[in-house]
Design a binder for these strands. Sequence first.
RNA 1: GACCCCGUAGCUCAGUUGGAUAGAGCAACAGCCUUCUAAGCUGUGGGUCGGGGGUUCGAAUCCCUCCGGGGUCGCCA
Length: 577
Amino acid sequence: MNLFAHFQHNVRAAIDALAREGKLPQGLDLNRVMVEPPRDSAHGDLATNAAMVLAKSAGMQPRAIAQLVADRLVADPDIQSTDIAGPGFINIRLKASFWPKLLDAALAQGPQYGRSDMGGGEKVNVEYVSANPTGPLHVGHCRGAVFGDALAELLSRAGYAVAREYYVNDAGAQVDVLARSAYLRYREALGEDIGEIPSGLYPGDYLKPVGQALAFDHDKALLDMSEAAWLPIVRDKAVAMMMDLVREDLATLNIRQEVFVSEKSLHISGEVDRTVEDLRARDLIYEGRLPPPKGELPEDWEDREQTLFRATQFGDDIDRPLIKSDGSYTYFASDIAYSRHKILRGFSELVYVLGADHAGYVKRLEAIGAANAGNKDVKVIVRLCQLVKLFRDGEPVRMSKRAGEFVTLREVVEEVGSDVVRFMMLYRKNEAPLDFDFKKVTEQSKDNPVFYVQYAHARICSVFRNAGGLAESAEKPDFSRLVDEAELQMIRRIGEYPRLVEAAAVAHEPHRIAFYLYDLASDFHALWNKGKESPQLRFILGSDMQTSLARLALLRVIRYVLANGLGILGVKPVEEM
RNA sequence: GACCCCGUAGCUCAGUUGGAUAGAGCAACAGCCUUCUAAGCUGUGGGUCGGGGGUUCGAAUCCCUCCGGGGUCGCCA
């Protein structure tokens, strides 16, 4: 149960009743009436802004409305008292008897506590990583990969039907370069001395297995062919092997996207052609000239007439070219086809997770979506992930792209582990830059949030291991025995969880889960520490089995929430450390 | 030149989409514990939310403007 949603419903019902009785005007818009946790728990358990929000349309003083609503609410069997504060907040204090009910419900839901049907099964497409299939993933891909994956999981737990997707850029000039690089490795595999890899080609050793595979498959047959003949063969093999590599890299982070859409297939199947025809039929394409780009003028800039999409009609800054000077489609053209492809598959929300260097693409992606949607209601949501700066014990880790010295995703995961990478990538807002220190993130101390949260889970498991027969008791726990302030704080925190999941999903901000888990762990550790000072607050009391059972059941619920939240982030809830 | 992101305590960052007296963690300071539920605990100080203007009952949050930091800017992918 979501207690805020529950009481929000009750507050709105109270207002409706007052309107029926003529004490408030009829037909007030209650959409903005919210029930939220108060900033300061000293104010009570819940607060509503109803009076302030309705004051204007009701033509009444906020405090007068607040008085009416507050008086009505005290009749609610779960509400102890109400009071009015500040400009017209109604603070609500719940009866002590309410919290056991909340825990009963949470315990009954078990690992599902926090799941929501808010999304109503709406189809959401989350596209992330989509790195070029020209080599292994590097550390720069980490954040988007983890963010996209956690966001997809979050939306799924909030009731959306989510597809996790990867767009394979297997059609452009870069994969031709890949093919030429792999061809060299092929000749190398056949015993030829290829010397230095020429600049402009990919030098990495990861292409050697591609060369060997080509030699195995084709022996010397490719040597006598013209480039035009061997290139497609080599390219397909290289792309397939690179995508295997990418999938393996992602698997080290427990990321397994289920849909991989090939750009090339959009061309072959004619979808790009059809998309352009569609747009042309709707007069969204014209032949025209673009103004020269601002800033430094590219050397090969020429003012020429080209085929343009009316992106400005959908909010973009400039109309975008669809056809290159050599007559082939631009990348942008296949982008439109891909967006259309998603919409035709029934997605009503398209989420793109991109690196911050792609900020300039936001408007055109939105424009594409709007154009393809036509009169359908399709949301385009772009989330940008800022750079990750690597440190080792405070010293920046240098990377030189020219020398080919980049840190791969796999190196990072192998050094610190998937859980650490995932948690740390999410323990920051996505649009804020992130410092990642190899030493700090693996420290086993309270200062390391990954450890801090996982340790809370492990500690709970440890209590159950020590609880003996009590741990398996089938007796219904009597939660009314939990009356200490630290216990109540714990319960209130648990009560916030379902609302938090929904809010994080709406905002597309998985980091909120990470911060919540930290707070939850913090409450738990505080409770644990209180047991050190005050033995009567220990979880297992030899003298009082009923209280022990209630506390163990509370721990069970905390554990469900920790495991549930960590599950959204894709971090394992470890049982021992 | 245009557009996007960022600017909150000494440091690293949250801030529940416009709510109440702006919060954590480090660091600092002051105590406590030397134990068992291993990888400490409690408390204190610390702020012109980059500056200024506006919107309204109410702004760190929305709008305008300026300052500072980062990023991007036809046909590449």
